[in-house]
Deep mutational scan, measured.
Amino acid sequence: GIDPFTGEAIAKFNFNGDTQVEMSFRKGERITLLRQVDENWYEGRIPGTSRQGIFPITYVDVIKRPL
């Protein structure tokens, strides 16, 4: 089901994660935001896939912030 505490964002740019914990994505992908890790990073996942990880806040347009 849908978790009411998650947020939502759209990727503004392609992001290629450097490490296992970073999640790569392509511009235009819809991302579920799980939490804000710190002032620069979100943790999120791509709905319908097993992809999950952290990524820079500046790479996405936030539609709804996670609670």
Rank of each mutant, 00 (worst) to 15 (best):
K27F: 06
I10N: 03
D38M: 07
G17L: 03
E43M: 12
T58M: 13
T58Y: 11
G48H: 09
E29D: 06
I46D: 00
V60K: 00
T19E: 10
G53P: 00
Q52C: 11
F5I: 09
S24G: 07
F15I: 01
T32G: 05
G44Q: 00
F25D: 01
G53E: 00
E29L: 02
L34H: 04
S24F: 04
G48T: 05
M23I: 06
T32S: 08
F15M: 01
T6R: 09
V60H: 00
L67T: 15
Q20M: 12
G53R: 00
R26C: 14
K27T: 09
R51L: 04
I54M: 09
K64C: 14
T49H: 03
D61T: 14
E43G: 03
T32I: 14
Q52F: 11
W41V: 05
F25R: 00
L33H: 04
T58E: 13
L33R: 02
P4E: 13
G53K: 01
V21P: 09
R35V: 06
L34M: 09
I54A: 04
W41T: 10
D3T: 11
F13W: 11
K12L: 12
R26T: 12
Y42R: 01
F5R: 10
F15H: 05
T58K: 12
D61C: 15
N40T: 13
E43S: 07
V21E: 14
W41M: 08
G53A: 01
G53N: 01
F15W: 08
N16D: 14
P66S: 07
R51F: 04
I54L: 10
R51K: 06
F13T: 09
K27M: 09
Y59F: 11
Q36M: 10
P4M: 14
Y59V: 08
R35H: 07
G44R: 00
S24W: 06
G53H: 01
S24L: 02
I57P: 04
E29P: 00
I2L: 13
T32A: 08
D38K: 08
N14I: 04
M23H: 01
I10A: 03
Y42I: 05
T32Q: 11
L33K: 02
F55K: 00
T32D: 08
D61H: 14
I10Q: 05
A9M: 04
Y59R: 05
K64S: 06
D18R: 15
L34W: 06
G44F: 01
N14R: 06
S24C: 07
F5E: 11
R26K: 13
G28Y: 05
V37K: 05
I63D: 04
I57G: 09
L34P: 00
G48D: 08
D3L: 12
E22L: 08
K27I: 12
V62S: 03
P66R: 04
D38N: 12
I10K: 05
L33T: 02
I2C: 15
K12T: 08
G28C: 08
P56I: 03
I10P: 01
D61L: 15
P4K: 13
I63E: 05
N14K: 05
K64H: 07
S50L: 12
L34N: 04
D3R: 08
V37A: 04
F25V: 03
R35T: 07
T32L: 11
D38Q: 06
G44I: 01
E43L: 14
G17D: 03
I63P: 05
P66T: 05
T19G: 12
S50I: 10
I46R: 01
V62F: 07
I2S: 14
R51W: 02
R35S: 08
L34V: 09
I63Y: 07
I54P: 02
G48A: 06
F13G: 06
F13M: 13
Y42A: 07
L67E: 15
F25K: 01
E22Y: 12
R45M: 12
T58L: 11
R30V: 11
P56M: 05
I2E: 15
K12P: 01
E39N: 10
N40Q: 12
D18I: 14
M23V: 04
A9S: 04
F55R: 00
D38S: 11
I2F: 13
K27S: 08
